[in-house]
């Protein structure tokens, strides 16, 4: 399995947001795309998930252009959890997770053992089994997000993409979601690629960070090598102390001033 972009140009209507992007994502790792608002990080993720057609260039999955592959085949390889997904009103957790099997099901085919196992596993991994008959609206924000992740897991893909999966969640639920992703990665070797706003969370949970500014990759490496004073200044426009988190030895950012523009 290999996921990369070649000479990718992205944008909406006439506006170009990303130009000539070449990116290779490491398989079996957690990679987080970071950058300030409007830098194009979500756009990049959406195009990798083929939710956005490139203006030019290609996203390659195992060497094949993702936009020309059959849609269901792609959906068997990578799942995407968008930023604000919406479901039909009144849907139960179990019904939601069941829809994750859509790319695996053929026309008029009844759910088979494989489908049911995937659904049970997804519910279990996200600790949503006890909520299976509850409707989505009755859940807390964190539970709801876990239900959506369970749906993506039921899709049973080697790659999972998430667009700001912790937005709108309180601190505890944010950590809950990130813990879950970390666990999935270590236990099942699932490749996780996500967009996050919180740099310290990104550093804490990712093997790799990709810092994006104006649609260009400014740095792609381990958190220790990406989170430098230079990157803080150039990409985020802030001056920050960089210390090591005493609990896990990962870099921790403490901003203290706006960077002076040259």
């Amino acid at each position: 399995m290999k996921l990369e972009t070649q000479h990718l140009s992205l944008g909406y209507d006439d506006k170009i947001i990303v130009e000539d992007l070449n990116l290779t994502l490491e398989m079996g790792k957690i990679t987080t795309i970071i950058g300030s608002n409007g830098c194009g990080k979500s756009t990049i993720l959406r195009s990798i998930a083929r939710l956005l057609k490139p203006k030019m260039g290609t996203v390659l999955l195992d060497g094949k252009a993702i936009h020309t592959l059959p849609s269901k085949i792609v959906a068997q390889q990578l799942a995407i959890l968008p930023q604000t997904p919406t479901a039909p009103e009144g849907i139960t957790v179990e019904a939601l997770v069941r829809f994750g099997r859509y790319p695996h099901q053929k026309f008029l085919q009844q759910p088979n053992v494989e489908d049911n196992t995937a659904i049970e596993q997804a519910l279990e991994q996200t600790k949503m089994t006890e909520f299976r008959t509850r409707s989505l609206e009755t859940l807390s924000g964190g539970q709801r997000q876990r239900a959506w992740i369970a749906m993506s897991l039921a899709q049973d893909t080697p790659i999972l993409l998430l667009d700001e999966p912790t937005t709108y969640l309180d601190m505890k639920h944010q950590l809950e979601v990130l813990h879950l992703l970390e666990e999935l990665n270590t236990k099942t070797g699932k490749t996780v690629v996500m967009v996050l706003h919180d740099l310290n969370q990104a550093a804490r949970y990712s093997h790799q960070l990709i810092a994006v500014q104006n649609g260009q990759i400014m740095a792609q490496n381990t958190p220790e090598l990406v989170l430098t004073n230079q990157v803080m200044r150039d990409v985020f426009g802030i001056e920050a102390h960089l210390i090591l988190d005493p609990s896990n030895g990962k870099p921790h950012v403490i901003p203290f001033a706006l960077a002076v523009k040259k």
């Binding site: 849609s71 959906a75 995407i80 997904p85 039909p88 994750g100 790319p103 899709q155």
Partner: peptide, 23 residues
Amino acid sequence: WFLAYKLDVLAFSDDVASGLGMR
């Protein structure tokens, strides 16, 4: 009636439906 399943998937937001492999 055969379209029922497709209609169920179409009830999700666009990016979810495409993410599941719906054209």
